[in-house]
């Protein structure tokens, strides 16, 4: 895999994610109308900078804004790959969507999408192998950091170490995991295995940076399955595609970089 191809795959995946997310927002349009929940007339009063964006983020304009994002993402996939202007547009509109929903709509997946888009912007502007390498390193380090910090936070908590936290998440009324998984994780031994499995996987994930094929593929497969179970148990579908969009960077870096002098 070349750095060019890795960036191309990342670009296609993040654009697919943007298209799906924009369609999801459009299907929730009654909630960001002036009779809905996220009313722009109220939100824009929260900070003096917000009214500047009213021409983009007010009720009806926001719908055109989302359609423009879909068109731009399709343009990047089919007609203008690596177009700096279009990627920059998607970066700024992603940032504006975060502002529209008072910081973020979907937390982590919004953060990671912005990281990927900012990196792609730089790669599209400079287009040199050295910059492309730097951008792929940046994305790889960010995704490793995300897993590592998530694992660190969990291992520091007694309730996570004793699997109480995981059992609580699985059986709480806040999520709707399948009945069979609730039965499995109500048993202490399985909950313990799963909780420590998650902690060890997340904390050890940066080890991938020292690996090559085929073990890199096993790490990435484990990551994919991890996110798949997160969709199954907690409905986190946006995380699946956005995090998997970073995997070509990891694949490229680990197979094209040697630590030996």
């Amino acid at each position: 895999m070349t750095s060019e191809l890795a960036l191309k795959v990342i670009e296609i995946m993040i654009n697919c994610s943007i298209i799906v997310q924009s369609i999801e927002y459009l299907s929730l349009k009654k909630h960001f109308s002036e009779k809905g929940i996220w009313r722009w007339s109220e939100i824009k009063q929260e900070h003096p900078v917000l009214p500047i964006f009213s021409f983009l983020l007010s009720e009806n304009n926001f719908i055109y804004f989302l359609v423009a994002r879909i068109v731009s993402a399709l343009g990047l996939i089919f007609f203008f790959p690596h177009s700096f202007i279009l990627i920059l547009f998607l970066f700024f509109t992603s940032l504006l969507i975060s502002l529209r929903f008072r910081g973020s709509f979907n937390g982590g997946s919004d953060y990671m999408a912005l990281i990927i888009l900012s990196a792609l912007c730089i790669a599209a502007f400079f287009k040199t192998p050295r910059v492309q390498m730097g951008v792929l390193w940046y994305i790889s380090l960010q995704v490793c950091t995300s897993y590592f910090i998530a694992g660190m936070v969990k291992i520091k908590q007694r309730k996570w170490r004793s699997a109480e936290a995981l059992s609580k998440h699985m059986t709480s009324s806040n999520y709707n995991p399948p009945r069979w998984s609730q039965n499995i994780f109500s048993k202490k031994i399985w909950a313990m295995c799963a909780a420590w499995g998650v902690i060890v996987f997340e904390i050890c994930f940066p080890i991938i940076l020292t690996q090559h094929n085929p073990s890199v593929l096993y790490w990435l497969l484990a990551g994919f399955l991890f996110h798949l179970t997160n969709v199954l148990f907690f409905g986190l579908n946006r995380f699946l595609i956005v995090w998997c969009a970073t995997y070509p960077a990891l694949y490229f870096i680990t197979n094209n970089f040697s630590y030996s002098p």
């Binding site: 900070h47 900078v49 940032l95 910081g103 953060y111 969990k154 309730k159």
Partner: peptide, 25 residues
């Protein structure tokens, strides 16, 4: 800071599922 809160998507925390207490409804 209201400004930092507004731009929090630029400063990811990655603290997923750190709350192990009951989440209210």
């Amino acid at each position: 800071s209201p400004t930092l809160n507004l731009f929090k998507s630029m400063f990811p925390s990655w603290k997923f599922f750190d709350e192990s207490n009951d989440t209210p409804v």
